[in-house]
Write a protein that binds this DNA or RNA. Sequence first.
RNA 1: GCCCUCAUAGCUCAGCUGGCAGAGCGCGUCCUUGGUAAGGACGAGGUCAUCGGUUCAAGUCCGAUUGAGGGCUCCA
Length: 627
Amino acid sequence: MGDKDVSQAATGAPAAGAAATGATDDADQFFETAVRGSVEELLDAGAHGEIDAMRHSSAHVMAESVLAIFPDAQLGIGPAIDDGFYYDFLLPRPLTPDDLAAIEAGMRASIAADHPFVRKEVPFAEGRAFFEAARQPFKVEILDDLAAKAKETGTPLPPTTTYQQGSFVDLCKGPHVASTGKIGPFKLMTVAGAYWRGSEKRPMLQRIYGTVWSTQEDLDAYLHRLEEAKRRDHRRLGVQLDLFSFHDVSPGSAFWHPKGQRLWRTLEAAIREVQDRRGYQEVATPMLVHKKLWEQSGHWANYQDSMFVLESEGQTFSLKPMNCPESTFIYKSRLRSYRDLPLRLSEFGRLHRNERSGTLSGLTRVRHFVQDDAHIYLRPDQLQDEIKELLGEVYEVYGWFGLEPKFTFGTKPDKALGDPELWEKAESQIKAALDSFGKPYRIKPKDGAFYAPKIDIQIEDALGREWQTATIQVDLVMLPERFDCTYIDENGEAVRPMTIHRAIYGSLERFIGVLIEHFAGAFPVWCAPVQVMVIPIADRHIEGARELETLLKARKLRVEVDASDSRMQNKIRLAQEQKVPYMLVLGDREIEAHTVAIRNRAGDQENGVTWDDFIDRLAEETAARRP
RNA sequence: GCCCUCAUAGCUCAGCUGGCAGAGCGCGUCCUUGGUAAGGACGAGGUCAUCGGUUCAAGUCCGAUUGAGGGCUCCA
């Protein structure tokens, strides 16, 4: 399946020759991008605007400084990126933090000198000879690729353009700022390994990341944003809020603590309620499956390396990495009539994918996760209505969190399988559904899966970061054809259904990770693991607190009593740190009158509310799932 | 998987050029029984991730392993 971030959200199918689909990278790239590792990409410094020109210029200045310190350094590429720039170098030794400081100092000197950026165009051969003499083999390789490309297309060799500031010359198509002095406040951030041209068969270079901004305020704001992201990091908050932990006995799989599991169950119950209401039927299929299933689906050939495989009695099994093939066994367990469709089979599938060790990260990149998956078998004439229904479902669910879903329609890729006419029909119906749904959407041409046009759903969190979560894929080939699914139509003939794979949260793990960061741990009242902390002022109030606790629990509200011998102030502080929405203080006055003094986590105060009123209000707020 | 960095108490971290294992929070006991973000005293708690090496001596230096973090790559 296409997008990087979709993988654990998406249901899926084998990517026969997936490498050739030219999959795009991040959900936030909605323009056509150069193919990874191509000459275009290497030369495209991303300098599309003034600030990007400055960022790209910063990369040049950094290369100048690195070269001054390491005269033998070989230069890779140095483009502008979101928030800054990087440059890749082949260096004689690993860089240290001291090196970064020295490189920064060199950059400051170059900026203070205010060298102009001088563009120069020379004939190809001369340019190539220059970089050859400068012992810059990566630059020569780029030029040779350009030459090969020109030969292929029959166009004349392009001239070589270079930019020079001070004594430093770099192969570059620009543009740049006028001079080094125009570079704003910057900071070098980190060093990371990066393969030359993204290929693990090529040398590993050292990539230095930097950030640069027009003004000091912008730089400070950016650094502050990073701090804020760190503060909200779900891995940190997961420990602080006692939601989950990771242990080396099962890398990439979360251990859910009681509070995390409570949150999980609340989210699961909520989507289950929606599914029941919208005509889904929940199923459960085995986790351990014979390899012949994956041979039939095509995954064995393409994704065996990503599956956990085990042997028993001479037979080969694997832990399922996805649910969809198994749903076909339920579909085919009896003859289906056109009257039965759409048949919506939902499943909270526990999946295992053997992600490479270096890629694991918190809840967002795991080896074991649960999808709120569903497979909908339907007649082609039902497609438009069903899609529209699903868009509504996404809207409803995301509304519980105050999230505005963004829809992206990925259309037929070049390598698509299946009948082109079928594709065309499916795409026009999806488009009609999107249009009639009435919310804006984006189209990403050729970004569909090779077996299915799809709608990916992104959300933007409180820090403006975009996440891929839900997905809706119209499967024209994989389940219907490979698993030979049919239904009996009005004429008594067996015909192919279409299938929709969809997940609303996507992976529960990942979704919870996103929620933690979006809300900085302060979950909406309806799903907060602890909704109410009852705080007796003195020991003599504990009994009353327990009574109130019982009443709240009777309404299935999530409550705890802080019966420790701490002072009330400390109990409030701890509840506040746990981001508990409501703190109910109980002292003599309250016990006597059966009221509570309510303090919410924003610090607002409301005294003298009766127990019954509070319970009714909380029950209503919970049922409404207000964000 | 690859490159770099990291791993010390439940948590956050200090521990310099090798020389007796530390702090705050949390936890336990006791005192305190309180009115909206930390009351006090005492105490328990560590095979310094694991394995090996150098050394009179290793938390500290070297190597390997495991895990984590930042990237690269991959992602049905």
